[in-house]
Design a protein around this nucleic acid. Structure first.
Length: 591
RNA sequence: GGCGCUGUAGCUCAAUUGGUUAGAGUACCGGACUGUCGAUCCGGUGGUUGCGGGUUCGAGCCCCGUCAGCGUCGCCA
């Protein structure tokens, strides 16, 4: 070992010992006759003093050390002079009196210093990620990530789960996200696909009798990126045999409670609250509602039907809905201009036709540019329904079910953040259950699986599979943390007949089904046990546990929004020879 | 694919209504200094205002295009 201690380790008890530290020069303070060096590693910072007793040549050399260069220092641990202790440092009671400084590797003048107050642009941080990762905040994120994964692994190991690795090179399946493809050299013209999740493999493992499977699995989806979405991400994937939805949910409840306790020191009461999908959409307009604050959606459609106001009445009579939220005690904070911004937002982002709003006057009446279109009695009904109090701001959409959901959810999330309606450190975990089996694909005019094509319907909904597929509910459950989907799973179909029926509804004909996942259908014929599981988004868990709002902050080497790696410059071009071997020809016009 | 925000010194930012020679902090280089810890003091280097075009007597600022980063809608079983 090149060192005897770390830079976060030395305390008064070490005084008098000769030790050797290695680390990076965070800063130097050169006084001519003595130089102070803040030496940093991932454990902390220790002050090194190079004084005259070590010779003027050494003092001069220390003064010339570049920031962020990597050095090794041998010296004696000494108490700091009286009144010179630094209580900002864990090691601040002592300092290292240097006897020898060895430059392990110099550092060029860096494009940015990890210690600077204002963060440099993200493109630079990603390009010089090794410098960015020297920042304590990034180190904390990745250490937290490591701790969370360890808790998960320990938990599942203690519950008799077996860690099984599944292939990265698989085959492309219909439905779902766009696949990343890998060309096959041995099979010219054919492609592997990187897994969107280990879904099929883990089901096969259940058929094989592994009973409880777990894996920290890399997953790949070639879709556009977001603040909380990377093309390459990590799931805690698990599957259990002979269980129902409650069993899987209960197992994860235990994990959530344990992780919150051990990592954050927070007691999360279990069982976690549950809400059906229908209720979530009704009350919050989203299948992953943020339950850290209220501002629930109120349905005003029945009142709207009684009015003569064209906007309300028209929506209500044509199968649409009139729904709104009450922004408590906020009317005074919202100028006409700010409300116009919200209107633009719902129009532009969600295709809403407009945004109706009311201010609640001191005497409790509703005021709005549109109130002249409404009778006082109806205004009073709206006020009552929305529990309006003076200075409340009521925001109302009259539109299709879908647009009112998306628009009001968008407004709710945006206003919740802007008005700081929740504690920054709060962690709210819950389940959304009983998802629909199918949703209609507007473009293609057919059913698509809401979760995936192997999701089992609820037993009591089995007959609806044929009669009313849209009303059929699945044995599916999503874990929601602070309005973010932190995991999702289902009980799978273990009966080949039901599986065939579902494929049929999804428009997957027998031939396609056989071609794409014949192996699963085969396996279901060989004594497949009832089984189900869940996949947790590890990146999102870490992000939420760290209170961060960007997934790139918890990934060591993330991609930019254009799915580019600024550091390695991937994806890159390849030699013609490589293409030829793969029987590929590039038709891209850009180089 | 659409919309929006951003792009000025190595880095973080400023620059009045379109107006003279584009500034500050920090980093870097040189010098001074033995108790600093955001060290201090003195001096200095550093600019194709992302790139290309246009409007104008005059563009960092306005317009068009383009590139990059971010956010968002679509997309993400």
């Amino acid at each position: 070992m090149l060192r005897t201690h770390t830079c976060g380790q030395l305390r008064p008890e070490h005084i008098g010992q000769t030790v050797t530290l290695c680390g990076w020069v965070e800063s130097t303070r050169d006084h001519g006759g003595a130089v102070f060096i803040d030496l940093r590693d991932r454990y902390g910072i220790t002050q090194v003093v190079v004084g005259p007793e070590s010779g003027q040549a050494n003092v001069d050399a220390a003064g010339r050390l570049s920031n962020e260069s990597c050095i090794r220092v041998r010296g004696v641990v000494a108490a700091r002079l009286e009144g010179k202790k630094n209580d900002k440092l864990a090691t601040g009671e002592v300092e290292l009196r240097s006897e020898e400084v060895e430059l392990l590797n110099d550092c060029d003048s860096p494009p940015f210093v990890p210690t600077q107050q204002e963060l440099p642009g993200e493109d630079l941080r990603l390009r010089y990620r090794y410098l960015d990762l020297r920042r304590p905040a990034m180190q904390r994120s990745l250490i937290l990530r490591s701790q969370i994964i360890k808790e998960m692994r320990d938990y599942f190991a203690e519950n008799d789960f077996i860690d099984v690795e599944t292939p990265i090179l698989g085959r492309s399946t219909p439905e779902g996200a766009r696949d990343y493809l890998v060309p096959s050299r041995v099979h010219p013209g054919k492609f592997y696909a990187l897994p969107q999740s280990p879904q099929l493999y883990k089901q096969i493992l259940m058929v094989a009798g592994f009973d409880r499977y777990v894996q920290v699995a890399k997953c790949f989806r070639d879709e556009d990126l977001r603040a909380d979405r990377q093309p390459e991400f990590t799931q805690l994937d698990m599957e259990m045999s002979f269980v129902d939805a409650d069993d899987v949910i209960g197992m994860i409840d235990g994990l959530v409670a344990r992780t919150a306790k051990n990592i954050l020191g927070v007691d999360v009461p279990t069982p976690l609250p549950r809400m059906t999908y229908d209720e979530a959409m009704r009350r919050f307009g989203h299948d992953a509602p943020d339950l850290r604050f209220g501002m629930e959606i109120v349905d005003l459609t029945e009142i709207a039907k009684k009015t003569e106001f064209r906007v309300f009445r028209g929506a209500a009579d044509s199968g649409g809905f009139v729904r709104g939220i009450n922004v408590k005690n906020a009317a005074g904070d919202f100028s006409r201009k700010r409300i116009d911004e919200l209107t633009e937002y719902v129009k532009h982002d969600f295709g809403a036709k407009g945004l109706a709003w009311f201010r609640v006057e001191p005497e409790g009446t509703l005021w709005s540019p549109i109130s002249k279109n409404l009778e006082d009695a109806h205004l009073a009904e709206i006020a009552t329904a929305m529990e309006a109090e003076p200075n409340d701001l009521l925001l109302i959409l009259a539109d299709s079910w879908n647009v009112t959901c998306k628009g009001l959810n968008g407004l709710r999330k945006r206003l919740g953040a802007e008005l700081k309606l929740y504690e920054p450190g709060a962690l709210h975990c819950s389940w959304v259950v009983e998802f629909p089996m199918f949703e209609r694909d507007e473009e293609e005019g057919r059913f698509v699986a809401m979760h995936h094509p192997f999701t089992a319907p609820r037993p009591q909904d089995l007959e609806r599979l044929a009669s009313d597929p849209e009303a059929c509910r699945a044995q599916a459950y999503d874990l929601v943390i602070n309005g973010s989907e932190a995991g999702g799973g289902t009980i799978r179909i273990h009966d080949q007949e039901i599986q065939r029926q579902v494929f049929d509804l999804l428009g997957i004909d027998e031939e396609t089904a056989k071609d794409r996942f014949g192996f699963l259908l085969d396996a279901l014929r060989f004594g497949a046990p009832p089984h189900g599981g869940i996949a947790l988004g590890i990146d999102r868990w870490v992000m939420l546990f760290a209170g961060l709002e960007n997934i790139r902050e918890v990934i060591a080497f993330p991609k930019t929004q254009r799915a580019y790696d600024n550091m390695t410059e991937a994806p890159g071009s390849v030699d013609d020879k490589q293409l030829k071997e793969l029987a590929l020809r590039s038709v891209s016009v850009k180089s």
